[in-house]
Design a protein around this nucleic acid. Sequence first.
DNA 1: GTGAGGATCGTCT
DNA 2: GACGATCCTCACA
Length: 197
Amino acid sequence: MSPRSPHSPILTSDFFLRSPEIVARDLLGKVIVHRRNGERLSGRIAEVEAYLGLDDPASHAFRGRTSANAVLFGPPGIAYVYFIYGMHYCVNISCLPDGEPGGVLIRALIPLEGIKTMARLRGLPENAKSQQLTGGPGKLCEALGITRATHNGIDVTKATSPLHVEDDGVPPGKIQITPRIGLSKAKERPLRFLLKD
DNA sequence: GTGAGGATCGTCT
DNA sequence: GACGATCCTCACA
């Protein structure tokens, strides 16, 4: 197991108060933690995408505020979980002040704690590779046990929240920037950030 | 190793 | 009524 300080600082709403492009880049290397039934499930963020809102045709917020995407228009640091293709969840964290839409999609993690539980939730053997456990947006939600019903709209900047992001001080290393993938619109924008590894 | 296609449902038009 | 910020399986080289 990897060593860690007992109290890694939790990212505050100030962190998410900035542009999604900046937040996305800074989130790389941070640790997302889900407390589930008293167990810590965590992973280092290895891949993210920024979604800008009204200026970004690929964003859920592009066509304006609806009941489904209201989180993106709300205050920063709120988890936005949505259901896609009838079978997968994806998790975002809202950025920018209340009233301005924007967010960062968490696309991939490197598992740190609770790997056995993650494998069980994914229906995989304990020795499954991290790529199979949390190597995609839908996979990491399943591995962490995140669902829309339980996690959409919760504040990830509160220490009492079951879901939050910690900075354990490990430098992110080399960052690669590429166009976003899996989109039908505005996919040419270089808004995807990943750890080179 | 690589590429194509199917599964499945909440949300918007 | 149609689509989508995905993942998995199968076929073929």
